[in-house]
């Protein structure tokens, strides 16, 4: 187990360094930030001072080594646009994104699992077919357009829910600002969370349905039925427990993708999270913020993957054994 964790952690560090290099070189090679960041009416002296202040006159590798040194100490450079350190700028926005992602995942799981189970138990019934058709729709509808339609129906036409922003935030444990503790904040959270949840909901429905169908055909389920166990016990214990292993993994892995897709939802609903910050920064070529965002998200992803791998190997001994062998 320990060998497994150490080996996976080492891989993670290699991925992180490679990503930082790719991202840095790439991002620092686009366009000419001098034209964008420095007032065109500035005289030559002012321009040179600004270039030196931003470190743009140094060779690329030197910029990178400065950046890497900073990264280790948690200093990822200063935002060109906001003139504040880039990392705190992103971390400040992180609670908003995480709240949205958790809310979306909660919706997806609480609705997706029962629907998928239902469709798996009665694959040829009307409800089962309807659920499957709905899941195809959930896959097919582009997130951003669904967001627009939610705004159109619930904000513009019905006027029930706000269309943008986060609403008032309350400090959770006196530390983290969250929206869901006040009624107005909750109202702001509903549309973006539903929007972000739809895709994962469809995925969970399909996954649960497929798992249920396959498990129902296994010998141990047939045997449980032959023993005369109640349907509720066969499904609740024999089926559900066995399909939970892959589903827990997918929920874990998909959490990262929810954070990534939050970029789109945040842009539609003007939700002040990390994703919206990223899009704004790409448009303004605010490179320290782009690089910092990407590194933060890579770290987040690597952590999620690592945790999921460890949980998975704890749940399913076969994974551990296979890894120890090869």
């Amino acid at each position: 187990m320990l060998v497994f964790i150490v080996r996976r952690s080492m891989q993670s560090v290699v991925v992180l360094i490679a990503m930082s290099l790719i991202v840095f070189v790439g991002v620092y090679a686009i366009g000419n930030p001098i034209d964008i960041l420095i007032n065109p009416q500035a005289d030559q002296l002012e321009r040179e001072r600004a270039i030196a202040a931003l470190g743009l006159d140094k060779p690329l590798w030197e910029q990178y080594s400065t950046f890497l040194k900073g990264a280790v100490t948690g200093d990822l450079g200063r935002s060109f646009v906001h003139a504040t350190p880039a990392l705190p700028l992103i971390l400040e926005r992180m609670p908003a994104t995480l709240e949205l992602a958790f809310a979306a995942m909660l919706i997806a799981v609480t609705i997706g699992l029962p629907l998928g189970l239902w469709a798996g138990l009665r694959p040829h019934g009307f409800a089962g077919r309807t659920i499957m058709a709905g899941s195809i729709l959930g896959f097919s509808l582009p997130t951003f357009w669904v967001g627009l339609m939610l705004i159109m129906v619930f904000s513009v036409m019905l006027g029930w829910l706000p269309s943008n922003g986060r609403g008032p935030t309350t400090l959770l444990f006196g530390l983290v600002p969250v929206s869901f503790l006040s009624l107005d904040g909750l109202a702001h959270l509903v549309l973006p969370a539903v929007n972000l949840a739809l895709f994962k909901l469809a995925l969970l429905v399909r996954l649960t349905r497929a798992g249920t169908r396959e498990t129902l055909l296994t010998d141990y389920v047939k045997f449980a039925r032959a023993k005369g166990l109640a349907d509720s016990r066969v499904i609740g214990v024999h089926v559900l427990r066995n399909i939970m292993i892959p589903i827990v993994t997918v929920i874990g892995l998909e959490f990262g993708s929810v954070i990534a897709f939050a970029i789109v939802t945040e842009s539609v609903f003007a939700w002040p999270g990390m994703g919206k910050l990223l899009i704004d920064s790409i448009n303004l070529l605010d490179r320290p913020v782009i690089v910092s965002y990407l590194l933060v998200i890579v770290v987040l992803f690597i952590l999620i993957n690592l945790v999921v791998d460890i949980v998975y190997s704890a749940l399913d001994p076969r994974v551990r054994i296979a890894d120890a062998r090869g």
Binding site: G26, I30, S257, A260, F261, I263, L278, I297
Partner: peptide, 13 residues
């Protein structure tokens, strides 16, 4: 890594 993230990184790059 999710597709959208990779695509955004590439476009940024």
């Amino acid at each position: 890594f999710p597709a959208i993230l990779i695509a955004l990184i590439l476009i940024a790059v």
